[in-house]
Amino acid sequence: MRKSNDKVNHLEKNPEEGALDLIHTVMHQYRSQQYQVLRDGPHDVTHMESKVLSYFGHHPGATQSDLARKTGRDKAQLARLIKGLRDRGLLAGEADETDRRNTRLTLSDAGQSVQRALQQQARRLNAKAVQGMQPEEQRELLALLNRLKNNLDA
């Protein structure tokens, strides 16, 4: 039997070529494990739906237009997401008192429950990811990742 030559999922010899690929792989693992909790739970929430819930959890009373400005996402896509979340009872809406054309959105009790589950799972996964690392190693990792981010921001 021939030995498999799988180079796709291995870090290249040159770290300059593989750092972002590895970060992408780690983020894929993180998201997969985080959203498995929601897929297997009573709400079956997608990645984009969780982002919408998170936004309104951090910005209660914001509007769909606020979300569109913040994310740059297509308004029609966001309208469908928000409608679906409202239909499932995860988002609640109330007409804006000064402009009845706008709806102010907040998390419902069920939406807050989903948000808490996401936050708890994020904390568990963060702890799992740095398991076995000394505090100094964790600080060094954060410093290096911030350096990558700053390099890309420049």
Rank of each mutant, 00 (worst) to 15 (best):
residue 91 L to G: 03
residue 115 Q to G: 03
residue 128 K to Y: 13
residue 11 L to G: 03
residue 113 S to A: 13
residue 9 N to K: 01
residue 119 Q to I: 09
residue 7 K to W: 04
residue 95 A to R: 10
residue 110 A to V: 02
residue 59 H to C: 04
residue 18 G to R: 04
residue 129 A to L: 02
residue 101 R to V: 14
residue 38 L to Y: 11
residue 117 A to I: 01
residue 39 R to P: 05
residue 128 K to N: 07
residue 48 M to T: 12
residue 154 A to L: 12
residue 85 L to N: 02
residue 54 S to N: 08
residue 45 V to E: 05
residue 130 V to Q: 00
residue 68 A to R: 06
residue 70 K to F: 02
residue 60 P to Y: 01
residue 29 Q to G: 07
residue 9 N to Y: 10
residue 101 R to F: 13
residue 83 K to F: 14
residue 34 Q to G: 10
residue 58 H to T: 00
residue 129 A to F: 03
residue 152 L to P: 03
residue 94 E to P: 08
residue 148 L to A: 14
residue 19 A to N: 06
residue 151 N to M: 11
residue 131 Q to D: 14
residue 121 Q to R: 15
residue 134 Q to T: 11
residue 102 N to C: 15
residue 13 K to S: 07
residue 139 R to V: 09
residue 36 Q to I: 04
residue 73 R to C: 01
residue 51 K to Q: 13
residue 18 G to M: 02
residue 82 I to N: 00
residue 85 L to T: 13
residue 82 I to P: 05
residue 30 Y to M: 07
residue 55 Y to W: 04
residue 107 L to Y: 07
residue 10 H to K: 13
residue 28 H to Q: 12
residue 113 S to D: 09
residue 24 H to S: 09
residue 99 D to C: 05
residue 36 Q to L: 14
residue 91 L to C: 00
residue 10 H to F: 06
residue 10 H to N: 09
residue 93 G to K: 02
residue 125 L to P: 10
residue 75 K to L: 06
residue 133 M to C: 08
residue 64 Q to D: 10
residue 116 R to I: 04
residue 3 K to R: 15
residue 27 M to W: 00
residue 45 V to T: 15
residue 153 D to I: 14
residue 107 L to V: 11
residue 102 N to Y: 15
residue 50 S to N: 10
residue 13 K to M: 06
residue 56 F to L: 00
residue 42 P to D: 15
residue 18 G to H: 02
residue 79 A to R: 12
residue 82 I to H: 03
residue 61 G to M: 03
residue 2 R to F: 13
residue 148 L to P: 06
residue 88 R to Y: 10
residue 63 T to R: 06
residue 119 Q to W: 06
residue 141 L to N: 06
residue 76 A to W: 05
residue 61 G to Q: 05
residue 26 V to I: 13
residue 151 N to Y: 07
residue 67 L to P: 08
residue 27 M to P: 04
residue 30 Y to D: 08
